[in-house]
Design a binder for these strands. Structure first.
Lengths: 208, 208
DNA sequence: CTACTTGTTGCAGTGACTGCAAGTTGCGTA
DNA sequence: TACGCAACTTGCAGTCACTGCAACAAGTAG
């Protein structure tokens, strides 16, 4: 149970962060024990030591407590993509940006693993995570189309490329979870990008 | 408003099919008018001329009335994949199966387009659709891993390949919707597969 | 026409989620 | 240190998604 450092924060900020963390921990533990549908928001709140109403001050949905979203993060990644040199091939630009920024740095890896394990077992949560990934996917596709000067709403090439890249991200997270975190996420992510870059046709033929 | 042929069906079967169709049509129209969150299950039922309770006899969730799932379909596609010759490269096998079986044949294309347009505008529905696609994705990844004799729960290669293939499917549907159905879905789908097969790296460099 | 099966409906109940109107608590200021 | 503002927590009442159950209606097979 690692508590990451956060200096220069007020008492208020610390309390909020603690409550938020307590809620996601409670949610993760309860869902691991009983399964997502059997866990009520009320129970999560009580285990975390706050009122049921407060739960919804922190998370808009039960799913949010487990998946966790961060609009800033999307903006950060898209900005990084925009700052890449225009001459760089899109796949390389995406790779550079995502390998650096996709692995969360502000979360304890052990807890992230716990949450991923729960996620993998609960279809409902997986769908919710897909929604979050799709936010990023759309934003990236838009940025990429603009970069190439094509109408973002009708650019199947960019859409496909970005979707494949996000697939690399998703599968890397899952594979990382499969190794129980023993192999660093960055390396797995890099390997998935290698597979993509080498061309799926070629890779698919080999038996690994 | 095309009503497809269905012969040899009993009165019961016809009524059920009609009610189901009325419900999805009502749902599509209402959501197009007011947006998904503003539409209640009750209103959908009333517009379709059935009681609110009956709505939930047909669909487990509000989303289902718009996205529509079909477990048989997943099984059908996976079976088709299993019947492919083992020597065939995975990407080609997937392509052959999906180009033939992914475009729905039992739905009026105009209504499908309506639903896709609504889908594209509503994040919540998009997420639900992602869940449905993920069902298929998981099943295909499993079949592919088994075919190659690898543990299905830890085969990032297969997971990535299938995810990319499903991305081709998803983006093809969206691009088809973007052309208002003027270009046949099969052709767009085939083109997305061409992009995949040619290797993303190469394609991404070109400017279309 | 009768017995059986299948589908519809209303009702009551649970739980997710929201807006509102109090309280509490941290924090800058006099 | 006491005051007042702003932010956070809480309870309450309400809406809506969704479910199980039991009565009822309608199609079906003999």
């Amino acid at each position: 149970m690692v508590v990451l450092e956060h200096d220069g924060e007020s008492v208020r900020e610390r309390k909020k962060r603690e409550t938020r963390l307590a809620l996601t921990r409670a949610a993760t533990a309860l869902v691991a024990e009983r399964g997502f549908p059997a866990v009520t928001a009320e129970r999560i709140a009580l285990r975390a030591g706050v009122s049921p109403r407060t739960f919804f001050n922190y998370f808009a949905t039960k799913e949010d407590a487990l998946v966790g979203h961060d609009p800033q993060r999307v903006a950060q990644i898209v900005d990084a993509l925009r700052r890449r040199p225009p001459s760089e091939p899109p796949l390389e630009a995406l790779r550079a940006v995502l390998v650096e920024l996709l692995p969360p740095s502000d979360v304890d890896p052990a807890e992230l693993l716990d949450r991923l394990r729960v996620l993998r077992a609960e279809p409902q949560l997986l769908a919710y995570q897909a929604l979050r990934f799709e936010d990023l996917e759309r934003a990236l596709a838009r940025a990429l189309s603009e970069r190439r000067g094509i109408d973002p709403d009708n650019d199947p090439h960019a859409a496909l490329l970005v979707a494949c890249v996000m697939a690399a991200g998703r599968t890397a997270f899952m594979a990382w979870c499969g190794t129980d975190g023993r192999e660093p996420l960055e390396r797995i992510l890099a390997r998935q990008f290698d597979v993509l870059a080498a061309g799926l046709a070629a890779t698919a033929r080999s038996t690994t």
